Simulated scan of single mutants.
Amino acid sequence: MNGTGEGRGMAADGPQARAFVAALVRAGAPSVSGPAGLAVPEAAAAEVITVARRLALRAVPEGWWQPRPAPGLLGLATALVVDEHPSAPHWSAAERQRLATWVAVLIEHRGEEGVQELLGALTEG
């Protein structure tokens, strides 16, 4: 191994992994059936949206009246959070879109810490 990082694997939460997932989202990678990837309890979409909205609004800079996520984050939020929620198959397309928007805003302003905060809040119920 040398100082350039050659010989190291890709860290699951590192920048290479995030870039890889973002590339899959941009390419329109198909969903794979199987168990949900998030260890949170099932919940109604309205409940999850309310929690994500509250956390996202706390994260945005003061004075923003209508948070809009940076381009590309919507797909990332959908793939990594919305589609991985155990209740997602029961939600409408509009509910999934609203949740993805708030999660994308949360990711934009708080990154992975924001997602972890969201998962903690959903687990606490």
Rank of each mutant, 00 (worst) to 15 (best):
A43S: 07
R110S: 11
V25W: 07
T78P: 00
A52S: 09
R54W: 07
P15N: 11
A104D: 08
L74I: 04
A39K: 06
D13R: 14
A27L: 11
P41A: 13
R18K: 13
D13K: 01
G75S: 03
T50N: 07
H109Y: 09
E124H: 15
D13G: 15
G37W: 01
E113T: 09
N2M: 08
S87E: 08
E108Q: 15
E124V: 15
L106F: 05
L118H: 10
L122N: 10
L99D: 04
A44R: 03
A19D: 12
P71R: 03
L122T: 02
R26N: 06
V51P: 10
S33H: 15
V60A: 05
L80C: 07
P35C: 08
H85N: 08
L118Y: 12
W102H: 06
V103L: 05
D13S: 06
A27T: 08
V51R: 13
S31K: 14
A59W: 07
A104F: 01
V32H: 12
M10G: 11
A17I: 13
R110D: 12
H109N: 02
W65A: 14
R96P: 12
A22L: 07
R58G: 14
I49T: 02
W91F: 02
Q97Y: 12
I49C: 11
E124F: 14
I49Y: 05
L57V: 00
L38N: 05
T78C: 06
A100E: 04
G37H: 05
V105P: 00
P69V: 00
V32K: 13
W91P: 03
A11H: 05
W65I: 07
A39S: 09
E113L: 12
W102I: 03
V103T: 01
E108C: 08
L118S: 04
A39N: 06
M10F: 12
A121V: 00
G120E: 15
E62V: 13
L73W: 08
L38F: 06
G125A: 12
Q116L: 14
R68P: 03
P30W: 01
A56C: 10
A22W: 05
A36E: 09
L74N: 04
A59E: 13
E112K: 14
